[in-house]
Write a protein that binds this DNA or RNA. Structure first.
Lengths: 186, 186
DNA sequence: TGAACTTCTTGATATATGTCAAGACGAAGG
DNA sequence: CCTTCGTCTTGACATATATCAAGAAGTTCA
C-alpha cells in the first residue's frame, strides 16, 4: 500500500473503490535534494503528495527568506490558493532531501468531480483539514511564547528536527536560530 | 440592496438569479450588545453574515481570554470547522455593539447544493477565501514585528480602532495592550 | 587530504515587548 | 449627581528574544 492510499483512505475516509478511481490520475515524480517542486511566480500546475522525503515551503519577504511549512511523508504540497484558482505561486517548495511524490495535475484535479461521486464531499474535507491546520497555527501565535511553540511543534513532529536545518524550523516557528538552539539546550 | 446581497454578488460572483435563490434560506437575527451569537462547547447551528455592528471571536486558553478575530459589516461569523462538520464550537462570538445578522442554519446550508446549480463552485470560493485570510495572518506572524502588525492591521481596518476596545485588538495582534497603546502614540 | 561551506552552539550585549502600578478620563447605572 | 467600572495612557522596571561575534563540528568537493 502506498502512503497516498493509506492517507486518502485513512485520513479522508475514501472507500477502496473511491481510491482506485482516483489513483490513476496521480503520477509519480522524483525530485533530487535541492531542486524545486514549485517556484514563486510560476503557475501551480500540480498538487503533490509526499511519498517520502521532505519539501520545504518558503518565500522571500524584504529579501529575507521565510520558511512557512514542511511537507514530509503523508503531506500534500502546493500553494493551495494558486493551485485551485489557476494563479501563480507565492511560495517555493524545495526538496530538503531526495523526495518521491505522487502528483495530480490541475487538469486532472478538475476532472475528479466527474469520476468520483462523493468528490464534492471529499474535496471539502480536504480543504477544511487544511483550514484547520492554519487556524491552530494562528492560535499558537496568539497564545504561546517561543518556548511553548517549540515544545508543541517538537512533540508534533520530532523527526523533522533530525532531518531539517534547525534555522529553517526556527523561521517557521517565528524565532531566531539562536533562540531555538537555546530552548533545545534545556 | 442588503450588505449580504452586495457581498455575495460582489465578492463571490453570484449572479442575481443565484442570489435570489439563496436569499430565502437566510433569516434576520438581532443581537444586543454583550450577547452571544455562539458559545464555546455549543453546537454551531448557524452561519452568520454581519449586516451591521461587530462581533468578536474569542476563546479561553489557560484561563486567559484570546481574541481571534472581529467580524464587522460584510463578514461571515461562525466556527467554520464546527459548522461544516456539525461539531461543537471552540470559540465564542460576542456582540461588541448591537448587531444585525442574516443567518443560515446548518440544515439550510446543506440544502443549498440542491437549489443552486453552481453551489459546489461557490462554496469552494468561500472556503478558499477564508483559507487565504488565515494564510496571510500566518505570514504576518512569521515576517513582522508587533509594530508592523499594528500598522498593517490599522491600514486594513482603521474603523475598528474607534469601535472596539483596544486591548481586544491587541490580543488579536498578539501583543499587550500597553504595547499597542505605545505604537499608537507615535 | 585540505579548503571552503554550512550548521549549530554559546557568550555578551542590545532591543523589543511584557508586567506592574498609578492616574486620567469617560460611560453606565443607581 | 455621585460612584463605580472599564478603558487608555504613561512610567519604571523585568524579561524574552534578537543580534552580533566567535568557535567547534560536520559536509562537500576538488
Amino acid at each position: 500500500m502506498t502512503n497516498l492510499e493509506a492517507s486518502v483512505i485513512g485520513t479522508f475516509g475514501f472507500s477502496n473503490e473511491e481510491f482506485q478511481s482516483i489513483q490513476s490520475f496521480f503520477k509519480p515524480l522524483s525530485i533530487k535534494k535541492g531542486e524545486y517542486f514549485l517556484e514563486e511566480g510560476k503557475y501551480c500546475r500540480y498538487l503533490g503528495f509526499v511519498e517520502s522525503g521532505i519539501l520545504r515551503e518558503h518565500m522571500y519577504i524584504n529579501e529575507k527568506e521565510v520558511t512557512k511549512w514542511f511537507s514530509s511523508t503523508g503531506y500534500f504540497a502546493t500553494d493551495l490558493i494558486g493551485f485551485l484558482h489557476g494563479e501563480k505561486s507565492r511560495v517555493n517548495y524545495q526538496a530538503i532531501n531526495d523526495v518521491e511524490l505522487m502528483v495530480l495535475s490541475k487538469d486532472n484535479y478538475d476532472l475528479l468531480g466527474k469520476h468520483v461521486e462523493r468528490w464534492a464531499t471529499l474535496e471539502k474535507l480536504f480543504l477544511t483539514k487544511c483550514f484547520s491546520v492554519l487556524e491552530n497555527r494562528i492560535v499558537s501565535h496568539l497564545s504561546m511564547n517561543a518556548e511553548e511553540r517549540y515544545k508543541a511543534f517538537f512533540e508534533f513532529q520530532p523527526s523533522l528536527f533530525y532531518q531539517v536545518p534547525l534555522h529553517q524550523i526556527a523561521s517557521m516557528l517565528a524565532m531566531s536560530p539562536e533562540t531555538l538552539s537555546r530552548m533545545r539546550a534545556k
